[in-house]
């Protein structure tokens, strides 16, 4: 690749920010200048209390997942397949070697800190979709010794596969188990499965960490994340900093949960129940 991947990510992010307001592709971004959004972009001390959403950055991308819709389990499979195909995610036989960006688990494992043995059966049996939370104060980015994982001004916690040294400090630091390491060459199972690869997204090499990237590469092209495109009724994506965005509207109306809030990481993934 001629362009440094990190530069590409940055450029892509900026062009997405600059381009989308004008295009009005969807109600992601408030019109506003990019520089202003850098404010609050780095590790979060000094955040005042009170109305954080309004005082913070102009763009904070987030996802709300309507878990009730997932009773129809075919949607879970559809979403996972969309992500797998978009990002050439390999399937390993062993759980130990697994690489996954979005997957399902039950309430008890997703919210272990709010364990409730009297939980409604309906909720207990729901498949919750797990993914990187794109935390507002991400511990993974804080610990990375080379800034291979870093928070962008729009709130996406990105991963630079070409800079990562594979120390796996970020995996120890992520309290959500969102990160996967390529223990072996991911191209081996991709080849073995004979999968049709997405040429628009690079396959990774062994020895680097990866995770959900909120489809930063698709956003740069003005598209929605792959999971949103697959099931727009389940996955609601948008700008948390914009009080009029679709995601803010749905969060005002529905009860939502976020994972391990007590850790102060401020996850950007919401579960609507």
């Amino acid at each position: 690749m001629s362009m440094d991947r990190r530069e590409f990510l940055k450029a892509a992010g900026l062009s997405a920010v600059a381009g989308l307001g004008a295009k009005g592709a969807f109600d992601l971004f408030m019109p506003g200048d990019v520089d202003a959004s850098e404010h609050g972009g780095h590790s979060g001390h000094g955040h005042g209390h009170g109305d954080e959403a309004e005082a913070g950055p102009k763009i904070r991308l987030a996802m709300a997942i309507d878990v009730l819709q997932l009773k129809d389990h075919s949607k879970v499979d559809k979403i996972k397949a969309a992500c797998d195909n978009a990002h050439n995610i390999p399937h390993w036989d062993s759980k130990d070697d697994e690489v996954k960006w979005i997957w399902e688990d039950e309430y008890e494992h997703v919210f272990p800190d709010t364990h409730n043995e009297y939980l409604a059966d309906e909720v207990r049996e729901l498949p919750f979709l797990l993914m990187c939370n794109h935390c507002d104060d991400p511990p993974c980015a804080r610990v990375c010794p080379v800034e291979a994982t870093f928070k962008r001004p729009d709130g996406i916690v990105a991963q630079d596969y070409h800079r990562c040294i594979g120390c796996r400090f970020c995996m120890a630091a992520c309290p959500y188990g969102s990160r996967s390491f390529n223990w072996f060459d991911p191209r081996i199972p991709l080849r073995a499965e004979g999968r049709k690869l997405n040429p628009r997204f690079p396959t990774r090499m062994r020895g680097v960490v990866e995770k959900c990237n909120f489809c930063v590469e698709r956003l740069a092209e003005g598209k929605q994340p792959a999971c949103v495109e697959a099931c727009p009724d389940v996955m609601i994506f948008g700008n948390l900093a914009d009080p009029n965005s679709e995601i803010r509207k749905v969060l005002r109306k529905r009860v939502s949960l976020r994972r391990k809030l007590e850790l102060g990481t401020k996850p950007s993934v919401f579960y609507l129940v």
Binding site: S43, R142, V143, C144, P145, V146, E147, A148, R163, C164, I165, G166, C167, R168, F169, F181, N182, M205, R206, G207, V208, V209
Partner: peptide
């Protein structure tokens, strides 16, 4: 222990005081 030992020097090339 590291997955990409050839990139060890990245730690020097991109010094990251918050790590």
């Amino acid at each position: 222990d590291i997955g990409q030992p050839m990139r060890m020097l990245n730690v020097l090339l991109h010094p990251t005081p918050h790590s």
